[in-house]
């Protein structure tokens, strides 16, 4: 009926695929690094013949995987170390903002060299909001697959949880975690922060021969998401997500609705992992710019905009039935008055 006022830049529709590439890369990296570490230690020991068969397998596999990249295994594979909580990337040390804040609380001091490692992530968060949660977090990779498992279970006729809680609870968790870190003098928020746990536990499992206590906690969060609330941990409890949300309050890049293109189909609300309300312009600081809503929108009604505040709720979409009914009623009234 009406022609579209503006179509979003065509690439935004495909960002969701790019996001999955990014998530997969990060996760693969976390799987790869512990094995690279093992390979380095085998190399450092100079005793290939003394390795067990399984160790030889690891050595050989890693050799084929990395031989075209590195000459000196012991030195060159040091280029990338660590995980998303804190890592070294070609000489550049990067840390999660929560690690920096947690350490400030635990030590009650400002240790500048470390705080600087969180600077780049903080700057990116100021511009892109909670993008870490959607684009990098290794736990998100598992949690989103877990959402798919839940969908499969529902299709099979089983009940999964879809309760809703107050989203502000996670700020309480953040405050509690920092308070606990300050009291105990140890960065204990790291123990309830899934990306830190996932990175660590993969390393423990591969290099140290078994999962640690954190994996029990992580499985608990998976069950919570499955049985109680969809994506519940990230939505309501994650302390890191809370910090990223606060930092991203005035983010520059926001997904916004083009009300003229919207037909009120509500697919965006159904797909939104964080339970937000794109259908009625309800994004807020929680949006992680995952672009799943842009990808699913059948009428190109969602796009990126550069502005520091959300648009206010602009009511039903102009292509939807409700809006058109209201329009015709208004027209009739107008005619009667005339």
């Amino acid at each position: 009926m009406t022609s579209k006022v503006a179509t979003p830049f065509f690439l935004w529709k495909h960002l969701n695929k790019l996001r999955w590439v990014s998530l997969t890369l990060v996760f693969t990296m976390l799987l790869f690094l512990p094995y690279a570490h093992l390979y380095q230690t085998y190399e450092a020991a100079h005793a290939y013949d003394l390795l067990a068969d399984s160790e030889k397998q690891i050595y050989d596999t890693m050799e084929t995987l990395t031989s075209f990249l590195v000459d000196d295994v012991e030195e060159d594979l040091d280029a990338i170390k660590g995980n998303t909580w804190s890592g070294t990337f070609f000489g550049l040390q990067l840390s999660d903002p929560l690690a920096a804040v947690g350490q400030i609380f635990a030590g009650k001091t400002f240790y500048l060299p470390f705080l600087l490692t969180a600077l780049i992530p903080v700057l990116f968060t100021l511009v892109f909001g909670r993008f870490f949660c959607g684009w990098i977090c290794p736990a998100t990779f598992i949690y989103e697959l877990n959402t798919n498992v839940a969908a499969g279970l529902r299709r099979a006729g089983l009940k999964t949880g879809n309760r809703r809680f107050d989203r502000r609870v996670k700020y309480l968790v953040l405050a509690a975690g920092l308070l606990l870190s300050a009291i105990s003098g140890s960065v204990l928020v790291a123990g309830v922060y899934p990306p830190a746990i996932v990175g660590r536990e993969i390393y423990y499992a591969v290099a140290l021969g078994g999962f640690g206590a954190g994996s029990i906690f992580f499985v608990g969060t998976l069950l919570f998401d499955l049985l109680v609330a969809r994506r519940g941990f990230c939505r309501y409890l994650c302390p890191g997500g809370a910090l990223y949300s606060l930092l991203g309050h005035f983010r520059l890049f926001r997904i916004q609705r083009i009300v003229e293109n919207c037909n009120d189909c509500a697919k965006c609300n159904a797909i939104c992992e964080f339970g937000l309300d794109p259908l009625r312009d309800g994004f807020g600081q929680e949006c992680n710019n995952c672009t799943a809503c842009i990808a699913i929108c059948p009428t190109d009604a969602l796009t990126f905009k550069v502005q520091i505040r959300d648009q206010p709720d602009r009511g039903p979409g102009h292509l939807g039935k409700q809006y058109q009914r209201e329009q015709t009623q208004a027209d009739e009234k107008h005619r009667e008055a005339a």
Binding site: N83, Q103, A207
Partner: peptide, 21 residues
């Protein structure tokens, strides 16, 4: 304890695998 953020990089750097957690 104040400083350590439990990131596990020391263990990953150790060529002798003597660091445990």
């Amino acid at each position: 304890l104040n400083r350590c953020i439990h990131c596990g990089q020391c263990g990953e750097a150790c060529p002798n695998r003597c660091i445990n957690y």
